[in-house]
């Protein structure tokens, strides 16, 4: 891996662009429910949820250098917890959601103890195996989880008696708020000293250890944080779809989200969000016209691998940097 600058190239111009760009972007996001049809709004909700999911994985893959192939486990465990609590015990969103996040955090603590002993492809394998355990429980424990058929009829949450989220517009704002919160948290983490320590670990674990960092503890914290944010995405997804099935924590989903991260550009945060949005749009747009949409996505992956090996965002950044240097 080529050495990246230890401090990000953050020009004053860049900061100004962000400050100027933020209000219109926010306004656009807030007005979307009044511009789009309910179906298109649903697609935007999915884009946001998967963006959060992909960004949470980016914290591991892109910033800490831990390629996980079992990230759907936390997404799915939170989804199942929220779904079960709502369906069987009638818990409201303000109790079910924190409980779901705690469940995915506890799972990550357990899995972290096992998986963090390994590195690289071994880490990939063990995260894959651990997520399969979670999938096996969801699939096999039919009396609790409904097995293969999953659990339908999970109610949409309501904020309180006067604020039911059955209306698609209200639900959009609900998702927007939580995805925004999650994104803000990720941005803060990445920009903090903790975030820089993670980048250091990605580049050279031994050097970080020599500098006196407790590398394992940093990796563990990143692992659990990423799991909690994936769990948040899982909660939102279960409220959106109003059902949960073992498909939520299948390997296919773990691989899909990893591909979103790689496609968009690992270690850029915004890149995985772009990758996730692109995949959601392609899957839903192209498949109406041809059943060969998987081929189209395959072609896009090949093109990205050939011409933009650092993903879409990596490609854009390289271009910008090349322009900045005359």
């Amino acid at each position: 891996m080529t050495a990246l600058p230890s401090k990000p190239v953050r020009s004053r111009r860049g900061a100004a662009a962000v400050l100027l760009g933020l209000p219109p972007a926010l306004l656009a996001l807030l007005s979307l429910p009044y511009l789009l049809s309910t179906y298109d709004l649903g697609i935007v909700v999915q884009m946001m949820i998967f963006s959060l999911f992909a960004m949470s994985l980016d914290l591991l893959v892109g910033f800490t250098g831990m390629p996980s192939l079992g990230h759907a486990a936390y997404f799915g465990i939170a989804a199942y917890t929220a779904g079960l609590l709502a369906l069987k015990l009638g818990w409201g969103v303000w109790f079910a959601m924190p409980a779901a996040l705690i469940a995915s955090a506890l799972t990550a603590v357990l899995f972290g103890f096992l998986a963090l002993r390994t590195r690289g492809s071994y880490f990939l394998m063990i995260t894959l195996a651990l997520s399969q355990v979670a999938w096996g429980i969801a699939f096999g424990w039919r009396s609790l989880t409904g097995g293969d058929d999953g659990m339908p009829n999970i109610p949409r949450p309501s904020l309180d008696a006067h604020w039911p989220l059955t209306d698609d517009r209200a639900f959009y704002y609900f998702v927007l708020a939580f995805v925004g919160l999650g994104t803000l948290l990720l941005v803060r983490i990445v920009a903090s000293p903790f975030g820089y320590a993670l980048r250091g670990i990605r580049e050279s674990e031994t050097r970080m250890r020599a500098l006196g960092y407790d590398v394992w503890r940093y990796k563990f914290a990143a692992f659990v944080l990423a799991a909690v944010l994936a769990g948040l995405a899982g909660c939102l997804y279960v409220y959106y779809n109003r059902f949960v099935s073992p498909d939520y924590l299948q390997v296919v989903r773990s691989a899909e989200v990893l591909l979103m991260v790689i496609l968009g550009g690992a270690g850029t945060l915004i890149g995985p969000a772009i990758g996730a949005s692109l995949i959601v749009v392609l899957e839903n747009l192209i498949s109406a016209y041809t059943e060969r949409w998987l081929m189209m996505i395959g072609v896009i992956y090949i093109l990205v691998a050939m011409f933009a090996p650092r993903g879409i965002m990596g490609f854009i950044r390289e271009r910008l940097r090349a322009r900045a240097r005359p």
Binding site: S37, T38, Y39, D40, G42, I43, Q46, G150, Y237, N241, F243, S245, D247, Y248, V252, E283, N284, S287, A288, E291, W293
Partner: peptide, 24 residues
């Protein structure tokens, strides 16, 4: 007849059903 692909996956199938009902 409007065709869609559910991929045999519940969440995809639900989204595609929404596309057929709400969009088409």
């Amino acid at each position: 007849l409007l065709y869609e692909d559910s991929e045999g996956r519940p969440d995809v199938g639900l989204t595609k059903t929404k596309a057929l009902v709400e969009r088409d």
